[in-house]
Amino acid sequence: MLKDIFVTPFADMFSAPDFLLQVLWEGLVSGVLYALIALGFVLIFRSSRIFNFAQGIMVVFAALTLVGLHSFGIPAWISVVLTLGVMFVLAVSIERVVLRPLVGQPDIILFMATIGITLFLIGFGEIIFGGENKVMISEELGIPTGDTVLEPWGGLLILQHLDMTVVVVAVALVGGLLAFLNYTQMGRAIRALGDDHQAALSVGISLQTVWVLVWFIAGIIALVTGIAWGARAGVSFALEVIAYKALPVLMLGGLESITGAIIGGLLIGILEKLFEIYWGQPLLGGNTETWFAFVLALIVLLFRPQGLFGERIIERV
């Protein structure tokens, strides 16, 4: 038994390094997507203390809108622009209808409100676009579909072009976002609001504008994630579960930390894949990906309650 846990997996890794690389690559790709979603969470949490549970359904909603618009005969790229418009309208209406009346309520009330939004969007999406599984319009969007086969150490390593595109786009998006947050006035306003609400308000930063902006950014992230994940697995409401995957990332990285979201996402993506392939499937009957990330984050949190990169919690009476 001990041998199965501590020796065999590592022996397997060394005997087939090409397979290990394949596993690592796949973990990296999903890790990039987790990091993206977690980033959407972090932005909203920092600027408004709202734990946005609707992020997952926003992914589904964005992807559905894109596919739906395209099916009405609108060219792919124009549909993307229109979908962005829809996400903007969504951000404005969420801020106007839900968040503004709830300013200053306890965290848990705002959290519940985002679950309310989730339910609303599920019903709304199903009525308009139908619940059946759809195919992402990856070809029309010019996403490459082939694969590159490498042969390290005489083995086999298959890199899907789709996955490579996802990684490149995600890295570009994260880079752009970081640049936006660090070098533009609006971006600095978002960060200021995250640091201190009162101080930010007193120097004239508009809460409403920033909230609309962060929800819109979350919407953009949702659209990109939706396209990427939808191209891999089809567009359906099952996509919502990838939002749950972003939660342990947040725990691990810390709810306030942008770096934490990125590093945590990559770590969890890779580690859960490794665990599933080398420990989960042979020893535990597989499908451990549903809980591994949570348990990992839980264990880390027992030693660092604020997450790996979170702000140190200082408590006063």
Binding site: F111, M251, F294
Partner: peptide
């Protein structure tokens, strides 16, 4: 874990129970 973890971190930690136990039932 609630002895060390608070607030939303704890909420996510209880999700560990949620996903792990359902997996176990299966």
């Amino acid at each position: 874990p609630s002895l060390r973890i608070k607030g939303f971190y704890l909420a996510i930690a209880t999700l560990a129970a949620q996903f792990f136990l359902v997996w176990l039932f299966e």
